[in-house]
Design a protein around this nucleic acid. Structure first.
Lengths: 152, 152
DNA sequence: TTTTTTACATAGACATGCTATGCAAAATCG
DNA sequence: CGATTTTGCATAGCATGTCTATGTAAAAAA
């Protein structure tokens, strides 16, 4: 198979598809390059779990796995790591002997606060280089991306 | 350390910071939930490397690492995996005996095409549920996220 | 020509993700 | 009510993805 033969491109009727692919690419690249917080060891899933626990209170492992779209064993091992950091605690669920309730600790809240501070420090200078209209566009896009994530 | 003591929140002057954190969170979650293509084994970095090779032609390992904001050994091992898939080839750089030029193969182009098709199939139905104005907002946000990634 | 720098590979560590499977508790069924 | 099925989580085992530290060979500089 030669490297020089052209590969057919998509037709002009698929503008929405190209927008879709472009959006995923841009969001992934943005997450990769801008969204990395210096010194942060854990993935964005970890921080979103902590944020969800802060917002919604204690939750089961399987609930967290479903929310974050990861397999249950993946969430089990993440929770174990967060437990080792003392950022969450595991409590028995009084209404179900099989389940465990994952609870955010104060140390977890503080770690989340530090993470958010570091993320803001990193990104605000970039956003500040944009005009007000573009900043507004990105704010609205945040809502839309959240909405699409929920739709999924 | 109790779990119930409140953690102080940020002041009202930091609206831009909250927007910044929200944007990162939304982009990361969108990438995690919507951007996952069923059956895709490799990370989004892998697909972006292939896309960059397609757009810009052969590149060195260290160039690719810098572009994707990963360490050089990370890119080395990724290129080895892509080479095992026959999606890229390594060619000696005629002008530098140390360097290796990474070249996209036709199989790599086809794999990229399949990936884009699968991604579009996954995301277009979601985008189609939005109004034209929101679709336009997301298209502009794609450009802005790319711009911010480049600024970084 | 010798030294330093550069480009890439290797080693080793750990996080993140998956599937398959095990175990114990809850729920269901006969 | 006892037996079976389902459910919630843990464990095992594997591959990817990421890092830092270090090695090697070629190029560049001294």
């Amino acid at each position: 198979m030669s490297r020089t033969d052209p590969v057919p491109t998509t037709g002009p009727e698929e503008a929405l598809g190209q927008h879709a692919v472009e959006l995923v690419r841009a969001a992934a690249r943005f997450t990769q390059t801008v969204g990395r917080v210096p010194g942060a060891v854990y993935s964005s899933v970890a921080w979103r779990v902590l944020a969800d626990l802060e917002t919604d209170g204690p939750a089961r492992v399987s609930e967290l796995a479903a929310e974050q779209r990861v397999a249950q064993p993946t969430m089990t091992s993440l929770i174990h790591r967060l437990e080792a950091e003392a950022w969450v605690e595991r409590q028995p669920d009084p209404s179900d002997g099989r389940a465990a309730l994952v609870v955010l600790t104060r140390a977890g809240s503080l770690a989340l606060l530090d993470y958010r501070r570091a993320a803001a420090e990193r990104i605000v200078p970039l956003l500040a280089q944009l005009g007000a209209a573009d900043q507004e566009t990105l704010a609205r896009a945040s809502e839309l991306m959240q909405l699409l994530s929920d739709l999924d």
